[in-house]
Amino acid sequence: MKKHNYLLDGIILIALILAGILVFIRVKTGFSYTWNWGAIPQFFFRIDESGNIKSNLLMLGFYTTIKLSFWSSLAAIIIGTLMGILRTRKNLFSRLTGRTYIEIARNTPPLVLIFIFYFFIGNNITAALGIDEWARNLSGTGKGILSFLFSKPERFAEFLSALFTLAVYEGAYVAEIIRGGLESIQKGQFEASYALGLSSTDKYRFVILPQVFRKVLPSLTGQAISTIKDSSIVSIISIQELTFQGMEIMASTYLVFEIWITITAMYFILTLSLSTLATFLEGRMIKY
């Protein structure tokens, strides 16, 4: 190990602080901004006509971001695992399928993917499959469940296209993570499974994937955190998640700094809880 140079660290730190103070003073005298933090809380919760506390825009956006990130991470893990496995198979067709998916998904700007999925799935597929109609015709409780788990029935088609976009985009990275994990598993594990007569599915389900997931849990957590952050781009198709709500509030109140600082903090809370949970899970996993 190299000896740490604390002197250098100290000098850099002091220089940064001085630069910060300088910028702060310049900004402070340069333009005046009247902070109005008091206006923010009402966007978290509001009190309706009958006196009940209701979630307001920020909280609703927060929930949508959570739901969207959860489902797209889950879907990304499923897609990524399948594709990651295909990528490592001996069969040329399997490998090409995995490779093609990964290359296309990783080399397309996510914003472009969103539009493709939005206009294709959102407008055509959901209509063709009758998903839109199905969602609109659900019973009261059905609509309640759908809203709780996904989104309001009227917006379900958009929500699905956002979910698919994120899943396909993040899935490519998951596939590469899984491929790395698979390649780190000793050949003997595959050979022993084969020799015991296990089917290919059982081999992956019981022997290989449990080992892979344990190994790549930190990277998968990182990817889930990326998904949370990347989910903000679906605001472009009017999914009412956190960033979208931020833009709405900003447009009506001009509380630029308060809103974006608040939203940054909310994303931060989300990602930090996720990595804390992952660290906790890692600690709980049996060591072998």
């Binding site: 000793q186 003997g188 594990q189 022993a192 007569g197 296990l198 089917s199 022997v207 449990p210 080992q211």
Partner: peptide, 24 residues
């Protein structure tokens, strides 16, 4: 039987032995 044993490291002895007996 392999030179490098190739037991499944995430499974107990019981699970190692039982897996193929149950699944196959």
């Amino acid at each position: 039987v392999f030179q490098s044993f190739n037991l499944f490291p995430h499974m107990t002895v019981r699970e190692n032995i039982g897996l193929a007996v149950r699944r196959v």
